[in-house]
Design a protein around this nucleic acid. Structure first.
Length: 269
DNA sequence: ATAATATGGTGAT
DNA sequence: TCACCCTATTATC
């Protein structure tokens, strides 16, 4: 599930497994032969991530990876595995093996090009030094919906459709309110919640926004509930908090989910 | 077996 | 707003 949390997770585990070691790189699928040859038999020096973009550094030759909808990594320790037909990039050292398949972007860039790409992105809540003011400036003067703005990577980097739905639910805010109508304290709440949720998701690469702490605030018991989301893909079901119907609609070409009871419906406001 | 759907982004219309 | 890229999983015939 490639939102910002999984990209941070991938940066971390690839750093642990590969940085400081000689890496054998290849493209079993053949679509990244030239790029793989550039980094083959070289030392991975660093990994970095900003939003949904992952960078594997080999000094000034940096593999820029964007997973898109379908991309994924398989990282294994002390195991041999045959690459699937779709494996775009295989990374290997004495201990680890990592196969990348189906990415939207997989290319070699230099350091300046990497900085250019990062500069186009908004602050990433997962970064210690992220500046929420930069996001607030854009949101506070925008007529676009808050639901659309949260998905805009140049406003905040790393939030995708799952976190968008869940952050707005937890803030009890309708996705259809204009950015300029969002109270400052609501934005602060969403931002600090995103810091918590994205960092929590990055520890294991999984999203889980239904937590005992959050439910307790609303006087609801978890009771071994295995739902990971409150509203994302729960349309047609009852809200876990208030029991109202969870709804869905298309916003800017993507499906948005919300609870009419908890968040209201300001589509015509 | 085939179709629909998906956590994303780009570029055309 | 839509088609498209790429691939896996789930739903429908």
């Amino acid at each position: 599930m490639p939102e910002g949390h999984s990209i941070r997770h991938l940066a971390t585990v690839h750093s642990y497994g590969f940085v400081g070691t000689l890496v054998q790189a290849s493209s079993p699928q053949g679509r990244f032969d030239e790029g793989a040859a550039v980094i083959n038999d070289r030392v991975m020096t660093e990994t970095s991530a900003h939003g949904k973009h992952l960078f594997l550094h080999f000094d000034n030759d940096i593999v820029h990876i964007h997973l898109g909808l379908y991309g994924w990594f398989k990282l294994r320790k002390n195991k041999q595995q045959q690459p699937g037909n779709a494996t775009r990039l295989r990374l290997m050292n004495d201990e680890y093996l990592s196969d990348l398949a189906g990415p939207t972007a997989c290319e070699i860039v230099d350091y300046d090009a990497m900085l250019t790409k990062k500069a186009k992105l908004g602050p990433d809540p997962i970064h210690d030094n992220a500046d929420p003011e930069k996001a607030w400036e854009k949101i506070a003067k925008s007529k676009k919906t808050i639901g659309g703005l949260l998905m805009d990577q140049s406003v905040i980097a790393g939030i995708g459709n799952v976190y968008r739905a869940e952050l707005l639910f937890r803030a009890r805010l309708s996705p259809f309110i204009s950015g300029k109508d969002v109270p400052r304290e609501k934005f602060d709440e969403i931002w600090s919640d995103s810091v918590v949720l994205l960092r929590d998701g990055a520890t294991d690469g999984h999203i889980r926004t239904v937590t005992e702490e959050h439910l307790r605030k609303h006087g609801v018991e978890l009771h071994g509930c295995t739902q990971y989301s409150y509203v994302y893909k729960r349309h047609g079901n009852d809200c876990l908090v208030c029991g109202s119907l969870v709804r869905s609609d298309t916003l800017d070409g993507r499906t948005v989910y919300w609870c009419e009871g908890c968040q209201g419906d300001n589509r015509n406001a």
